[in-house]
């Protein structure tokens, strides 16, 4: 197998993902969505369940257009703009944030709440409270938006409007931001490898 869905991973471990995995899946998923946007293939669709998120052997993370959602919602990426399931980038980000939170909350009771580190809670809060761009925004648009920097010159994202903003927030979580791509890919690669190891072990026992 070359990929596992986040749902399979959660069910196999029967426990929530850890925080670093949450950061990594957010970063890698937004990275692939952004790349799709640049190639003009973005079929923007809300993430409906963990089954829609696919973690690949090489550490890539993609949204599975047809994963679990009913065939009526599925349509080819080439479908026209008017098709009902298309939605804005911010809606995809919001739905991703919700699913990632649910993966962090997996197995907890309704009245229990997991204590998240403030930066991760802030990331999810930002993702689930996105702000509509003023129309100039489209995916892959590399506008030099005026950005805020903190005292040690680190770029601070205050509102999330694009996949790029999510990636910036995830990168800011690391000691060396420039290492974000390698680091988060390695985390997802390890998540896939460890899960496959467990999967094979359990299959052998069965």
């Amino acid at each position: 197998r070359n990929a596992l869905s986040l749902e399979e991973i959660l069910k196999l471990y029967n426990q929530p993902i850890n925080e670093e995995q949450a950061w990594a899946v957010c970063y890698q998923c937004c990275g692939s969505l952004r790349a799709q946007g640049r190639r003009g293939e973005s079929s923007k669709r809300r993430v409906e369940s963990p089954a829609d998120i696919r973690i690949w052997r090489d550490g890539a993370v993609t949204l599975d257009a047809g994963g679990g959602s009913s065939s009526s919602a599925r349509s080819s990426p080439r479908a026209g703009k008017s098709e009902h399931s298309r939605c804005r980038e911010t809606e995809v980000i919001e739905s991703l944030g919700i699913i990632i939170y649910k993966a962090l909350d997996y197995g907890l009771k309704e009245n229990e709440e997991r204590e998240l580190s403030p930066p991760l809670e802030q990331l999810i809060d930002h993702m689930t409270n996105t702000v509509e761009a003023d129309g100039s925004q489209d995916e892959g648009y590399e506008a030099l938006d005026e950005c805020v920097v903190d005292e040690n010159d680190k770029e601070v994202v205050e509102v999330v409007q694009s996949y790029r903003d999510v990636m910036k927030l995830c990168a800011a979580h690391l000691p060396t931001q420039s290492d974000a791509a390698n680091h988060y890919q390695a985390v997802c690669r390890a998540l896939f490898a460890e899960t496959m190891e467990l999967y094979t072990f359990l299959a052998r026992i069965k």
């Binding site: 850890n18 925080e19 309704e110 229990e112 709440e113 997991r114 204590e115 809060d125 689930t128």
Partner: peptide, 23 residues
């Protein structure tokens, strides 16, 4: 159940879990 690797607290009305469950 083994010791979990994270802390669990009582769900709070103004917490992120409540906000997300309303979405």
């Amino acid at each position: 159940k083994g010791k979990s690797l994270y802390n669990i607290k009582q769900k709070h009305d103004s917490g992120i879990k409540a906000k997300i469950s309303m979405k």
